[in-house]
Nucleic acid binder design. Sequence first.
DNA 1: TACCAGAGGAG
DNA 2: AAATCCTCTGGTA
Length: 773
Amino acid sequence: MKKTLLDADYITREDKAVVRLFYKTESGREIQEITDFRPYMYVLPKEHDLEKIQRELEKLRNVGEVKVGRRIEKNQEVDVLKVVVNQPKDVPDLRGSIKELEECKEVREAHIPFAERYLIDSGLIPMMDCENLDLKIASFDMEVYNPGGEPKADKDPIIIISYADNHGLERAWTYKTTDNLDLDYVEVLKDEKGIIERFIRTIKEREIDIIVTYNGDNFDFPYLKERAEKHKIPLSLGIDGSPVKLERRGMNLGAKVRGRPHVDMYPVCRQIFNLSRYTLEDVYLEITGREKKDIKVGEMAGIWDNPEKEKFKELLEYAMSDASSTLEIALAILPLHYEISRITRELIYQSSRAGSGQRVESLLIKKAFAENILVPNRPSDRVVNERQRTTYIGAYVVEPKKGIHDNILLFDFRSLYPSIIVSHNIDPSTIDCECCPEDSYKSPTGHYFCKKEKGLIPETLNEVIQRRIAVKKKVNDEKNPEKKRFLDVEQQALKLLANSMYGYFGFPRARWYSKKCAESITALGRKYILHTIDTVPKFDFDVIYGDTDSVYLVKPDIADREEIMKNAKNFLDEINSELPEAMELEFEGFYPRGIFITKKRYALVDDKGKLIVKGLETRRRDWANVAKDTQEKVLNALLKDKDPEKAACIVKDVVQNIKTGKVPLEDLTINTQITRGMAEYKTEGPHIQAAKRAIKKGLEFKPGNIVTYIVTKKGSSISDKARVIDFVEEGDYDPDYYINNQVLPSVLRILEALGYSEDELKGLGKQMTLGGF
DNA sequence: TACCAGAGGAG
DNA sequence: AAATCCTCTGGTA
């Protein structure tokens, strides 16, 4: 019978730990209990009298059994003692007392949570085959009474709970109504208690497998839990009837529903997409291309207090669309996370909340177990701090030849860092090994890497890369579009993981942290790109720019496309003939025109006439649309139409519009993230001062939130004038700021790179500013 | 005017 | 809780 593992935990029964595996099967749900698995840790002994330390360990309280064994550490077999413990809760104390023992050098693998330990040792793969099991997925969302800005769970009730599942049920539960609402999904219940109970009952009755939310970790679930407690209703959504558990995860919370994994799409979307903001509306638009219904949350309390038919109907429609769009987003994105779960073998609850570092580490721990390798301990805070204090040199960036260029060729190394790690066997266990002769090849940092034994990380990475190559081939061969999509998601997940491996070496909290490895990788990267640049003149190309793994070339005298491509081929062949097997320089594309401003800031037009912009204001969330759109139009006028007059006209018109107050607020908003607590700022930029004023009016801002603000008319400095969008009236903006600090700088930078003199630009700037008057 | 903190992008 | 390199703005003295 087909089944898929959704969740796992352990309980204690008669003083014994029992692992529970929560499966979805063809016929419903199954909970498998594992009673014969015990927690354990490894002890690395100082001396070789193993039996002596074995006897010492056996004397300790709560030790079940001590076994002598061999494990691999730094590519060498070493003696270890495996200490089996009765209960997970005994592990921390026991670990402490073992560390105190004279004979003990180190305790290993004591911090791996018990259920996770079981998953590692059993080799179970979560979410296996889950696409064939018709998982029941439900989303929910709440609207909350908020008369004083941000709602307070101790007094402000939930007024609507909306619900949608992938088996066709849509509901909006509330406890007020008006005549002729005419919405078939609305159910009017008695009170707040009634809607909470109905929600819980629906999840259970419809046998939901996965619950999805948008920000449920830090809003809906904590709020719902507190309101449910007020009504003395247990929030018993767990498949075993257990209540929803709120876990601390760094600065945030995680809402855990036992056996019915909760996936919060908000952190998932923040990780996957690069957007200016991450409201449900923005993300829905990004995924579906459709606008989602939105209302002003400030009006919600008023509508509830005084429900008029049209407004109340709109509120319910909005509530319903929150749940159904969250479900739609989840159905689009979950397949990627099923795949990540399978690859890293993490439960979906974990993998949907994990960062790149944690994912890489999960994969490595599983691989280490399979290879009998001892897992390094997590670094202490002291060690983390030490690691943070030392940095290393990264990539090389070529100073661009500023201005416009024609017929540009782009070459880049395919997966530069992953290919270096694999081809040079870069790993903490292979670096400066004793078995290879001292005179073996040294990287530019002076380190060399073992030639005999493959390291854990290069081996794991190579498997990921090889699997991706195989899957990509299958994608190409597959005719069935659904299967094709499925495979494509798999190769995307593998790519994501392969690209995270280098960063993991330099991550201060990594178990397999190695600054030496990280700096060897970047040093080799610099060596390869610099050698590539050195080879360019031999083929009569000029380098106009390059960054990390890429070079942009032009052939100054020749315009014949065929001849250019012939040279390009010869150039590629020469470089590639000298590279290690896993590495390759590729021809990436031809661009008829491009403009280079500074390092990491340039724009290109491709063969199809499409404009590609890198690093410029157009690409940044902390610039207003009015500046970004104008800059893009100017780039098009210059690069595609080759018409500076047109560019000047565009700018004049925009300046005119700003002056006459015609520009709508949505084109003037600036988005900037809050990166720390309000008290930690040494200098407060406009977004912080705007946020502080909004906090006084009842809004909440936490680290990670994006402030959307306008520079208004009222105030002296820019920060004085900055107001969060919710409090700005249409038309209240500072034209001076938007002309002189937004539109003109972003546009003039481009004209400057074109070679207009400063005086000319000043004149132009003035002319534009005065234009029309 | 010079310097720094802060932010967000590129690869 | 993946890395470094780089540009640019606005506050501050």
